[in-house]
Structure formats: C-alpha cells, structure tokens
Design a binder for these strands. Structure first.
Lengths: 224, 224
DNA sequence: GCCTTGGCTGAGCAAGTGCTGAGTGGTCGG
DNA sequence: CCGACCACTCAGCACTTGCTCAGCCAAGGC
C-alpha cells in the first residue's frame, strides 16, 4: 500500500483529502503544521507528500527544503492559493515535483498523484540484494544463493520492507504500518509470526540468519 | 562530483552516455573492453559502473564478478540486449544491482543511476566512534576493535549516551534521566549496575577501560 | 591508621518479550 | 462443493532483561 502524507493547517482540507485518498486505496497521514509534518515524514516514510504553501510557523517552502535534504527524490505536490503564480514558481524552483492550485479538483490531484508515483516507481531498482539474498520486485522472485524461494504476498512485502532498509532496526509497529497498513488493528504478534515464517523459508537450506531480533527494539536485516 | 565508469565495446554507446551523463554533472570514464574497464575501475574508484553484458574478450558477467571481489558494494547497472531475459537473469544472479535493456532510454537509465547512488549513500551507516570502540546506532551493533559486542537495549542506550558526550562527566541522575527517562523513580544504583555490566562487556578482551569513574561526580567516557 | 562515604558486585526475583504450534475463518481454484 | 492455502489469533512456554538488595571494597578526610 502506498503512503501519502498531507501537510495542511486547514483541517477541512486535511479531512477531505484523507477521506478521498483513503477511498482510493492509499494510506493517508495528515499533519496540521510544518513541524508535525516533518516529524511524521521521518517516522512514516511516505511515498508522496502533499504540502500546502501557506502555513503559519514553518511555511511550505521551508518544509519542502527540509524534506528534500532527507530524501531528494521524494515526490512532493504543492497546494497553492488560486491566484499566486509567484508562489508556484518559487515552489517549483525549490524543488516541488508538481503543484495543484486551490480550490482543489480531486480528479486533477488524483491524476497528478498517480503520475508522480508511477514515475517514482520506475526509478526504483527492481533488484534488491543483501549478502546471498536477492529479490526482484518486478518478477516477484526471491532467491538465496542458488535456491529459489517462494513467498506469499504478505511475506514478500515484509521482506521487501526489510530489504529497502538494510542495517536499520525496524520496530514492530513501523512494520505493521508499512506492511499491513494503517487500518490494521490487531496485535503486533502477527509480525512475530510472519518473521518466523520468513526466517524458516530463508534459512531452509541451513544458511545463516539474516533477520536479527533486537530485543526491545525490533528487527534488523543484516549479516551475522 | 560523482564518478561513473561506462564499460561498453560499442563506441557510439560510450560517447552517447559520456555526453549525456557529463551534462548531468557526473564525471564519466569510458572503457571499450572488459580488461580496460577493470584497470580503470582500479585507478579511478568510480561510484557506479555501467556495464554491457555482451562484449568480446572478457564478457560483462566476468567483469562484474571481478569488480565485486574488489568492492562488493559497488553499484553496477548492466546493459542487456533487448530480448535476452536469460542474460538478465544470469547477470542478476552474479550480483548486478539493476539492469537496463537496450535500446537505452536515457531518462530511465538516469533515474536508475540516481536511485542506486542515493541508496548507496543511504546505506552509509550512522556511526559513533571513540578510540577502538565503534557503535552503529541504526543497525544496533557495537564493536571494540575486531571484537563484536552484543548489548541489551538498555546497555546500548547507556553506551550511546556516553558516546554522544565523550569527555564529559555525567552524573548518575543525568544518566537516569537520559537513559531511563524521567518517569523512573528507583535508586541511582541501577546506573552503577549497568555501568559495571557495560565495562565487563567492553573490556572482555582485556582492553583498557573507557568508562572512568569520577568519585562524587559521575562517569566519563574517555581514553586513558 | 581509622572512619565515613560513595562506589562495586554477585545473587536472586518478577515481569516482560519473543517464539512457537495449533487452530479458525475466509477465499480461491478445481 | 471440496481441498488447499493464506491471513490471522491465541495461549503456553522459555528465556532474557531490568531491577533490587545486602554486603563488601576503596578512596579520602581526619
């Protein structure tokens, strides 16, 4: 599931977008200020950000600049006031990927979102590797050394989350969020169960463990 | 400036990529055979290699294998002929990070290059170091010289507090606050207990003490 | 050299955390 | 309609971890 972060100080815009985009199958987080937006971006790893230019506190352009220092390719759509061509130009120069002017046409916004996400996906490499483990996210194949491994789609997504963040501890709630989506309200025990299954499959040939448990912190994908 | 090495026996491909990538701000070297490619890789330390699969002499797969023995993390993009899925699969098994099939779409190639370079940079871990002690706060690993050390998450946080404030005396209450949090109401003796455990693990190989006691004041992390 | 005080240590306990096997309900293809 | 498979739940177990405590040791003042 793709994750979108909406940063807008106007709650009605936030709610409107959250409802509409959730309906379209995206996981949506809303932040009502630049500060909160930046911290949510750091926690949630959104695939795309929708950002209002005009906000009290840190304004949209500043937020954009800071988002970009963290991840220069993160797709960002700016929301601009109706008659503000200056803002638009400034925003684009600062590095926004696209802009949509208020009042928002949901259809237009949705089209821009799809196009940006498609472009961004095309840039992502198809092949993720760590040690002798290799996964091809296009062909949906996984192999450990010479051994082909078949995973269910959930196992695959879980492994992908790990492979996209090698050497980085991920706690269970982050994984729940990334793999199961925000609308999952069950126990974090599912993560344990699936990690167990993944390990079983990844180590079926007697290979060393790649998904390590860090008690009290989460799991890491790393050698040894 | 990032350096890219193109290895392709077809001069027109080489020139095309050299012009295009130079324009994008990369430093580009071109080699027209596997042999030359390998020696240029040794001289120039490229940040990324673009490698044709089909070449006379040493072929792309062999070049890839040798590149990887020198630097297993070096990002490599393979160029494959249009209808050669077998080559692709073989190439990926040998350890290419991604592949782009000919005829080359420059936009796609550029996108993949950026993405791989970003990933490569992102993998550079967040590391704290003092003397021969090294901790990676993302991967949750600690090493003293060549020796791997396993810490519990509390021990880890305590060491992190020290590593973030080297050469600074920290009293027990400050440590309690930083590591245990403000909602801890027990005895400051816990700090002593944990410092003891940390020392035990950090000095298990006979290394000199790094966490020093300052009677009446607290502890410092420093050499000697 | 003795006493006080602060720090060190080993043992022990209770709660928490993660692992696991079994089981349930739902979905999909044959 | 049945069987296979998948996502998920649950409860019990094993082990780790965080913490306490009591006694001991060492440093520094007198």
């Amino acid at each position: 599931m793709q994750r979108i972060l909406v940063i807008d100080d106007d709650p009605s815009v936030g709610n409107f977008l959250k409802r509409g985009l959730s309906y379209e199958g995206y996981a949506v987080d809303v932040a009502e200020s630049g500060e909160v937006g930046l911290s949510k971006a750091r926690e949630k790893y959104p695939d795309l950000v929708i950002l209002d230019v005009m906000m009290p506190g840190i304004d949209g352009l500043e937020v954009l600049k800071r988002l970009r220092t963290a991840d220069e390719k993160l797709p960002v759509i700016m929301l601009t006031a109706k008659d503000a061509p200056e803002d638009q130009i400034k925003g684009l120069n600062t590095g926004a990927d696209d802009y949509v002017s208020k009042p928002i046409s949901f259809e237009v916004l949705l089209a821009r979102i799809r196009s940006l996400l498609r472009r961004h996906r095309a840039e992502a490499p198809h092949v993720l590797r760590l040690a002798d483990l290799e996964m091809n996210t296009q062909a949906f194949t996984v192999r450990r050394g010479p051994r082909e491994i078949t995973l269910t789609s959930l196992e695959f997504r879980l492994l992908q989350a790990f492979m996209e963040n090698p050497n980085r501890v991920m706690n269970k709630h982050l994984l729940l969020d990334r793999v199961w989506g925000t609308d999952f309200f069950g126990d974090a025990n599912v993560v344990e169960v699936y990690v167990k299954q993944l390990r079983q499959k990844l180590e079926a040939g007697g290979e060393p463990r790649l998904i390590q448990t860090i008690r009290g912190a989460g799991y890491v994908l790393r050698e040894k």
